[in-house]
Design a protein around this nucleic acid. Structure first.
Ligand SMILES: [Mn+2]
Ligand SMILES: [Mn+2]
Ligand SMILES: [Zn+2]
Ligand SMILES: [Zn+2]
Lengths: 138, 138
DNA sequence: CATGCTATTGCAAGAAGTTGCAATAAGGAA
DNA sequence: TTCCTTATTGCAACTTCTTGCAATAGCATG
């Protein structure tokens, strides 16, 4: 069965609706797997839904991220990219050559706990971007 | 002596120049202390330098961050803010009420080391933004 | 299946951020 | 001081992102 239908109950339960626009965008994110910019999502999703607008893409991506169906990340230039929400992970990018490595969340787990107990906050996000110099560039 | 002049040798050594635009922007960042959006920097700096353009502000802020005189941070909406580079710190923001707390870098130190040894990267950045729910909101 | 409520979308206008290029002005050298 | 190189800026055109509002369409209810 269609991947996107799995999300319907999640939305309904919170009073939201599944629309053709949301389905198309979820399908794009799910199929591509990696990070996509709003414009890239727009280009892809438009193939399925020609009268989709960029406005809706921006609003939908933000909506999906807010409700845990997608994750956003900034890749250094101040622009957000999005991906389908799956396993928790982070990114490490070389400032010089742009090479990127995925970071397991388990590496940050104890730090997250320290942060939570010292601040009283409950951390919700696990999709950070770190910057550094890779072994070749440093 | 003027704060901004202290930066001159740092720039010269790398082949860059100190300009009235850079001075004005550094003065604004230094005087304000906290995070400012490019537009806010523009508004302030323009008081000293009426024919400054927004283009130059964007390019200058990026330049200053790239060379360690300023730090950038994204505050959740995908937009960058800037501040003068001083002590290393991070931020923790409540997704619900927007309340923010400063996080000491020392809390992340051992995690940074783990990350470095497991990835082979040398981490350059210490100005992250974490998201969560504050004690009132969670 | 028809109706009504309201979440969601598209449109239009505007704000924010980017880029190429020619003119300007730091600042090293003579 | 004057000259010269080239880093830096301003301008104009463009792309990306945001917002208010009226029209549309999910979907719950009867
Ligand atoms: Mn990711
Ligand atoms: Mn900060
Ligand atoms: Zn590298
Ligand atoms: Zn809160």
């Amino acid at each position: 069965m269609s991947v996107t239908l799995d999300y319907v109950p999640q939305l309904r339960a919170r009073g939201y609706r599944m629309t053709s626009q949301r389905m198309a965008i979820l399908r794009v994110l799910h199929h591509f797997g990696g990070h996509l910019s709003p414009t890239q999502v727009y280009e892809q999703a438009r193939k399925q839904l020609p009268n989709l607008t960029e406005t809706t893409v921006y609003r939908t991506l933000e909506f999906l991220a807010e409700h845990g169906l997608a994750r956003s990340a900034h890749m250094g230039n101040g622009h957000l990219v999005y991906e389908i929400a799956q396993h928790e992970h982070h990114h490490l990018i070389c400032r010089n050559c742009g090479n990127t490595v995925e970071v397991k969340h388990s590496l940050l787990k104890t730090m997250y706990q320290k942060l939570e107990s010292s601040s009283g906050y409950k951390l919700t996000d696990s999709h950070l971007t770190f910057f550094g110099l890779c072994s070749d560039c440093k």
